[in-house]
Simulated scan of single mutants.
Amino acid sequence: MSFLRRYVLPVLASAVLISTTGTVRAQETVPNLRDAARDSYIFTYPLVMMYRTMFLQAIDATSPSFSGGMGVWLHLGVATPADTDIVTPNNDTPYSYAWVDLRSEPWVLTLPAIEAERFYTSQWDDLWGHVLDNAGSVNDGNGGVSVLLAGPDWAGDLPAGIDRVIRDESRFLGTLTRTQLLPDGGMDAVEAIQNGYALRPLSASLDQPAPRPQSRLTGCPGRTARKRGLRTGTTSPVFCRLSRRTLRIAGPTPRSRSSGSCRESRSTVLPLTRKRRPICAPGSTMHARSWPTRRAN
C-alpha cells in the first residue's frame, strides 16, 4: 500500500480534481481512485515482471542471466544452493530457457526424439504470464516435434514439416523447457538432448529472405541510470513507466480485452506515467542473480 499512498493516489487525485468542473467532490473521488489504482497495479504486475525477466535474459548483455539474445538457448545443469533465481528448483528436470520476438515473423521450435522412458516438456508463456502450451512428451510424445510459434497477427499457412502452432497473444514468448535427468547417462545425456533443442525464424527455416526487423527493445526508456534502475532496483514511478511501456508492447490479451481491469489499467496507468520522470533507485527486490551452473548453447 505504500506504493499507492506515496505515488499513485496523489497524482491520480490531483489529475482528476484538476480536470473536473466541481461536480465530483474529493471525498467521493478518492475511494474510487484507490480501487482503480489497486486494480491497475495488480493487473500490470505480471506484465512488468515478465518483461523484466525477458529484459534480463534476452536483452541486457550485461546481466548475469543473459542468454545471448532472442532465440538463443541457455541450458542449466543441476541446481545448487547458489542458484537462487528459482525459489524451489526441480533437480529431476534441468532447465533450459529462451525468448522469441514474434513481431516480424514466427519462429520454429524443434524438439529432438528422445528415449521412451524419458520425459521432456517445453513450456511457453506470453508476457502476461499465461502458460499457452507445453510441447513435448505429454502433448506430442517422445518422437520429436516441430512447432510454429506465431504472434496474434500472423495469418499464413502452416509450412510443410511443422506439426502444429502455438499462438501467442503478446508478440513475445518465453520458454522454461525441462529435460528429465535419469540415472542412465546422467547429465551427459541431458546435455545431448538440450543441444538438440532448436529455435529458428520461419524465414530461415524456409530459406527465404527475412522480413524487416522491428525496432530493438531497450529496458527503461531514457538514461543509463533508468536502465540500471530496472536491473538493480526501482521505485514506483519506474514501475508505472514500465507498465505503460509493456502495455503498448504487449497490448491487452484476447482473454482480458473486455475486462474492466484492462480498461482501468489503460486509463489509470498510461496518463499517470505519460509526463512523470522515472526515479531509478537501488534497494528494491527487483534484481538479477547469477546462474553459476548455466551453459550457453
Rank of each mutant, 00 (worst) to 15 (best):
L230G: 00
A155D: 12
L230V: 03
R276D: 10
D163Y: 10
R257T: 00
P152S: 09
R266T: 11
P112H: 03
S267P: 10
T246Y: 05
Q208I: 03
K227R: 14
E191P: 08
Q27R: 14
A155V: 11
M286L: 15
P278Y: 01
R248F: 07
D92Y: 10
T218A: 14
D157N: 11
L102H: 01
L9M: 02
A13C: 14
S19G: 14
L109H: 06
A82R: 04
Q57Y: 09
G71A: 04
G260T: 08
A79R: 01
D101Y: 05
Y51C: 04
Y97V: 06
N32Y: 15
V238W: 01
F119G: 02
V78R: 11
T110F: 08
A296P: 09
S96E: 05
S65A: 15
L111K: 08
L148M: 05
A198I: 04
S256E: 13
A281T: 08
D126N: 11
L176I: 03
A58H: 05
G260K: 12
F239A: 01
S19Q: 14
F43D: 00
T175A: 07
D39G: 13
F3I: 13
G161V: 06
L176W: 01
L74D: 06
A135M: 05
P10D: 04
Y197K: 04
I18Q: 13
T88N: 05
G196I: 05
D92S: 13
D101F: 07
C240H: 01
R171G: 00
A150K: 01
W107A: 03
A204I: 10
E264K: 08
P81G: 13
N32E: 15
V11R: 12
S146L: 08
V145A: 02
E264M: 08
G185K: 07
P292G: 02
P64F: 06
D153C: 07
L33K: 10
G186A: 02
S203Q: 11
F55C: 07
P81V: 13
Y51W: 09
E117Q: 09
S67F: 11
S104R: 08
R294N: 07
G151V: 06
D207N: 15
L111A: 09
S63W: 02
V24A: 15
V72P: 06
R226D: 10
M187F: 04
L132S: 04
A61L: 06
L182A: 09
L111S: 08
V48A: 00
A82N: 04
